[in-house]
């Protein structure tokens, strides 16, 4: 009987929280099917008349292009991160215990964790502009660069604690070269860490706003989804039905991914935060 006692207040509190989380999402979807004048006049009402015009306008205004930009940038950045970072982490994890130079390099590569982006924001913006890299390519390079500190830290810790050195030595005795050992043996063994790094960086890059704002704002054809949503709301200042449709696209796409990979995403967030 004692167990039942705590159930009811628990459910009450949890349900209040659930409503608080669901309500803004529900209202966003609801309002995306309304005409603008009903959004201002009857925010909580059911759509009357029900309209798909907001979504039609969104398509006409090129939402597919912005969605594709976000996809390209996220996928390309992640692929490069997984290609470049674990390799370096493996090399550092193996050489650091005996070599001061590599200890120094390791610190150089992870020190970025402690530096707020605002410190480099101004120089990097003018540098990218001078290099002609205020583009999707430039953005991908920066995501790769700024993913290094945290991802490298996570990978290096994993190699040190999970992948024994004897494995490398056994492979070497069998005549396996370093590249071969890394790609055939070590890389596949890092699989759990690949999942964590992939999730943390994919979420960050997909949702990021400041870097696209700094690099891509001038060229509309390169906008990412969040940058488009922001500019779209400014553009249709008084006619914001289509804006609601743009939020729905953002939320629904991430919700689908979340429901499919929930377990991995939550594990990734938990692992990634433990510095």
């Amino acid at each position: 009987m004692k167990k039942d006692k705590i159930h009811i207040p628990t459910y009450v509190f949890l349900t209040v929280g659930l409503v608080l989380i669901a309500l803004p999402m529900y209202l966003t979807v609801l309002n995306s099917f309304k005409e603008t004048r009903q959004i201002t006049g009857g925010f909580f009402e059911l759509p009357d008349p029900f309209t798909l015009e907001n979504f039609q306008r969104l398509l006409d205004d090129g939402v597919v292009q912005y969605f594709a930009n976000s996809m390209t940038i996220t996928i390309a950045s992640i692929a490069l991160i997984i290609l470049i970072v674990p390799m370096a982490a493996y090399a550092l994890a193996r050489t650091m215990p005996r070599n001061r130079v590599f200890q120094g390099i390791y610190i150089m590569l992870i020190i970025g964790i402690f530096v707020p982006f605002q410190v480099i924001m101004i120089p990097i913006t003018s540098m990218m502009s001078d290099l002609g890299l205020s583009s999707k390519l430039g953005l991908i390079i920066l995501y790769l660069t700024y993913a290094v500190p945290q991802s490298l830290f996570l990978y290096a810790g994993y190699v040190k604690t999970v992948i024994p050195k004897e494995l490398d030595e056994a492979a070497a005795i069998d005549g396996s070269g370093k590249f071969n050992t890394y790609f055939k043996i070590i890389f596949p063994m890092m699989k759990p860490m690949h999942a964590t790094v992939l999730i943390l960086n994919a979420l960050w890059i997909w949702n990021d706003f400041l870097l696209p704002l700094l690099l891509l704002n001038r060229d509309e054809s390169t906008w990412t989804l969040p940058l488009f949503q922001f500019n779209y709301q400014g553009q249709y200042f008084s006619d914001f039905g289509p804006s609601f449709a743009s939020y729905v696209v953002g939320i629904v796409s991430i919700l689908i991914v979340y429901l499919f990979f929930q377990r991995h995403i939550i594990d990734g967030m938990a692992n990634g935060s433990v510095k």
Binding site: G17, L18, I21, L203, W206, N207, F209, L225, P226, Q229, F230, Y247, G250, I251, I254, L255, V257, Y258, Q262, I265, I266, M269
Partner: peptide, 11 residues
């Protein structure tokens, strides 16, 4: 309860 963490902050 975990869902808000994956939404874009700007959105």
């Amino acid at each position: 309860y975990f869902f808000p963490a994956v939404i874009s902050t700007v959105t």
